[in-house]
Computed example of a mutant assay.
Amino acid sequence: MIFQVGTLQSTCDKCGATVTFTATEALIYDRHRWDLEYACSSCGNAQHTGGPAPLPQYIRDAILASNPPSRISLSGETGSGAVLLKVLRSLNGGSIAEAKAAAEEMRENGRGGTKVEITILKKALDAAGVDSIVSHSEGD
Rank of each mutant, 00 (worst) to 15 (best):
D61P: 01
G94K: 06
R89S: 14
K115G: 13
A53W: 06
T20F: 01
G139H: 02
Q4R: 13
K123D: 15
L55I: 11
T114W: 09
S41T: 13
K100E: 10
H136T: 09
S75Y: 00
G51P: 04
H32R: 07
S66M: 06
Q9D: 14
A127T: 10
D13A: 12
E25K: 08
R60Q: 04
L64G: 02
E37K: 06
V87K: 09
A127W: 00
M1G: 10
L27G: 07
A17G: 05
A128H: 09
P56A: 06
V134K: 05
A23Y: 01
L64I: 00
A23D: 14
I2H: 14
K14Q: 15
G76Y: 05
G110L: 02
S90F: 06
D13I: 08
A26S: 15
A102G: 02
G76E: 04
G93K: 09
D35Q: 11
H136L: 02
H48I: 12
D140C: 02
I63P: 10
S66F: 03
G110D: 03
G129T: 06
V134C: 10
N67D: 13
A97R: 14
A39C: 03
A103M: 03
A101D: 09
V87W: 11
L8C: 07
F3T: 11
N45T: 04
S42E: 15
Y38R: 03
R60D: 03
P54H: 01
G94L: 02
G6I: 04
Q4K: 12
S73C: 06
V19P: 05
L84C: 00
V5M: 12
I133Y: 05
D30P: 07
L121K: 12
G113P: 02
I120T: 05
I96T: 08
E25Y: 01
G129M: 08
A65D: 09
L27Q: 07
I133P: 00
I72S: 03
G16Q: 13
Q47T: 11
A102W: 00
D61N: 14
C15A: 06
A23C: 15
P69E: 12
A82F: 01
D61T: 13
A23S: 14
L85A: 03
Q57K: 15
G110M: 06
E104D: 13
K122H: 14
A124M: 04
R89H: 08
G76I: 06
L27M: 11
Y38I: 07
Q57N: 12
G79F: 10
E25C: 01
G50M: 00
A103R: 01
L64P: 12
T78C: 07
P56H: 06
D35S: 11
V116A: 10
M106R: 03
R31M: 08
D30H: 15
L64A: 03
L125D: 02
E108V: 09
H48T: 14
I72L: 15
S75D: 05
R33E: 12
F3H: 15
V87A: 08
L55T: 08
A62G: 02
P52G: 11
V116G: 07
L85H: 12
L8T: 10
A26E: 13
I72G: 05
F21C: 02
R89C: 04
